[in-house]
Design a protein around this nucleic acid. Structure first.
Ligand SMILES: [Mn+2]
Ligand SMILES: [Mn+2]
Ligand SMILES: [Zn+2]
Ligand SMILES: [Zn+2]
Lengths: 140, 140
DNA sequence: ATGTTACTTTATAATGATTCTAATGTATAT
DNA sequence: ATATACATTAGAATCATTATAAAGTAACAT
């Protein structure tokens, strides 16, 4: 278990105890080639189906929020019904496919630089996020 | 009732019957100098306090969604807890004050032009929205 | 005006995502 | 091995939103 040792270290370094539940969730979230977007529901479905481990829904919530707080996950709000999480924690923008409800990363180089000419007085800019909603060409 | 007649016409033209509930809500939302952002909770509080009319919460939801569908309101998702609505239906961006949880309009001229260099294949860009999160300068 | 119909409002229940609780289990340090 | 703080868990609670279905009202034809 080479990869597992990495996650143990990662968790320990964050002050999180490496429990088997957290390690399983790490595997699902971070042991992939590409980053991805998911809802809590997606995640618990993946755990149920692909992993031989029953993790309480409360633990999934706890863990996702713990990972978000440690900066290993990002939360993305597209509509108020569901909350999306992102394993890509870098500053980046998103396409949102309104037909399929899918989030797609939009890399910095796919979009012109964004300059804020006038800011709110007495405040510092914390993040700039662009959301591009796309739809099918054919009218429905 | 000059203004009221306008709202009656507006509703009729949209295929919505001008009920007294809808007219009251029109007054609250559209009989103002400036556009503003609100949650359903905000709106029903305003109706309770400033207007001598008791409107069922279900009707507030129904009306807001009807107005959104007709293009008189815009829905804005900042975080998954609350849904914000906007009486400014033009294409525009937002500052979100993370200290006060307030939405502030960001006009087109306060921000550089945004060019999408690479789009999702087979899709047309429907909207481009920028969200700028701001915070106090002093660390807390 | 009256009646008919479709639309609207309303109170209340249902839903569903998220959070809370408090009991049980476990990792870590001594 | 023991103590202790941290973590997991099932189930309950919360809260925003949506559904239901009964009663009310606007629009329209007679
Ligand atoms: Mn909605
Ligand atoms: Mn959250
Ligand atoms: Zn992303
Ligand atoms: Zn706005």
């Amino acid at each position: 278990m080479n990869i597992n040792a990495d996650f143990v270290e990662k968790l320990r370094n964050s002050g999180l105890r490496p429990t088997k539940q957290r390690l399983k969730i790490c595997e699902v979230l971070f042991n992939t080639e590409k980053t991805f977007h998911f809802t809590i529901n997606d995640l618990s479905k993946i755990i149920k189906e692909k992993v031989n481990e029953k993790i309480s829904l409360a633990t999934v919530y706890n863990t996702v929020h713990a990972f978000k707080k440690k900066g290993y996950l990002k939360e993305i709000s597209i509509n108020s019904d569901k909350s999306y999480f992102d394993t890509n924690t870098s500053v980046h923008h998103h396409f949102y496919d309104e037909d399929t409800n899918q989030l797609i990363d939009c890399h910095q180089n796919d979009i012109g630089n964004i300059s804020i000419k006038k800011n709110v007085t007495g405040k510092k800019v914390n993040s700039i996020e662009v959301l591009i909603k796309v739809k099918n060409n054919n009218q429905n």
